[in-house]
Write a protein that binds this DNA or RNA. Structure first.
Lengths: 139, 139
DNA sequence: TCTAAAGCGGACAAAATAAGTCCGATTTAA
DNA sequence: TTAAATCGGACTTATTTTGTCCGCTTTAGA
C-alpha cells in the first residue's frame, strides 16, 4: 500500500534522537521510554541498524547504541534498506514465481522504471532534513 | 513496506490493455482471462476505476469497460488514488489516534514533507510511459 | 568475582491488512 | 425471456506486520 512501516518510523526516531544527543550512548530502554515504543520491537530495529553499520552497539552494562557517522552522511534509503532490506516496489522482483501474472505481465518494465526512480529519490533524501524540520530542533 | 498492491498492478494492466485495444469495450472476463487475474478481484478493481471516472462502465449483455479518456491524460497518482484512496505515507495521517507515538513523535513533519514529494512524483508520472515501455507495444 | 544492566537472536503469538471468493441484485442486448 | 454483463456487500483465507517471550552473551562496577 506504499506505506512506511512502523519499524522504519522507529528507526528514524531513534536516529534523530541520537543525532540530537550529540552521539552519546543511548540504550533501547531509554529510547523506548521516551518515544513510547515497545522496547523489544525497538531492540530488533536497532539490531538491524547495527548490522548495517548505521549505528554502533556497545555491549554490557551501560551499553547501548551510538551513531556510527553523522546524520549528515545518511539518506532515507540507508534506513529503509537497513530495516527492510533492498527496496522492491513489487514482489516479483524478489520472487518471480510468486506472481501468477509473471508470464503475461505487461507492466513489468515500466514498474521497474518507477522503482528505480524511487530508489534515486530515497538515495537523495538526506536525513539531515529531519533535523532541520523536526519540532524539537535546537537552534 | 512501500510496495505496490496487487490491486494497483491489476488496474495498470487493465488500463494499458484498454489503451492498446483502441478504447474498445472490454469485459472483466476477457481481461481476467488474458492476464490470469482472479475475475472477481479484477471486477472490484474495475469498479473502483469506474467510480473515480478513469473508465466508463457499460452495463448489461456485451457490456464492459472503456477508457474515459486517453492514457495520455492519466498519471500514476490517478490510479493509486482510484484504487486505494488518498495516498498516505503513514497511518497517522488518516487516524492520528491509532498511533501510540503521536504525542511525542519527532518525525511527523519531515515525513509529511516526503509524502508530499512522493505525491508530486506520482502526479508527474504519466501512464503513457507504460505504453512506450511495455513489451507488447505496437509500433 | 558476582551481579545487574545491557545487547543478541530465535521462536512464537497476535493483529492488521491484502487478496480472493461467494452470491444475490440489477441492467441490457438479442 | 434469457443470458451476459456490472454492482456491491459479506465473507474467508493468506500474508505481512507488529509485538512478545525467553534464554544467551557481554561488560561495568560494587
Amino acid at each position: 500500500m506504499l506505506r512506511l512501516s512502523k519499524r522504519v518510523e522507529y528507526a528514524l526516531m531513534a536516529l534523530l534522537h541520537m543525532d540530537e544527543e550529540a552521539d552519546q550512548v543511548v540504550s533501547v530502554a531509554e529510547l523506548a521510554d521516551q518515544y513510547d515504543i515497545p522496547s523489544d520491537m525497538l531492540g530488533k530495529v536497532m539490531q538491524a541498524l547495527a548490522r548495517s553499520g548505521l549505528v554502533k552497539s556497545i555491549h554490557g552494562a551501560h551499553g547501548g547504541y551510538q551513531l556510527s557517522t553523522s546524520l549528515d552522511n545518511l539518506v532515507l534509503g540507508d534506513v529503509l534498506e537497513a530495516v527492510e532490506g533492498p527496496f522492491r516496489l513489487v514482489k516479483c522482483q524478489e520472487t518471480p514465481e510468486s506472481c501468477d501474472q509473471y508470464k503475461v505481465c505487461p507492466i513489468r518494465e515500466p514498474v521497474l522504471a518507477i522503482q528505480n526512480q524511487l530508489l534515486d529519490y530515497l538515495a537523495s533524501f538526506e536525513l539531515k532534513t529531519f533535523r532541520e524540520t523536526s519540532k524539537s530542533k535546537k537552534i
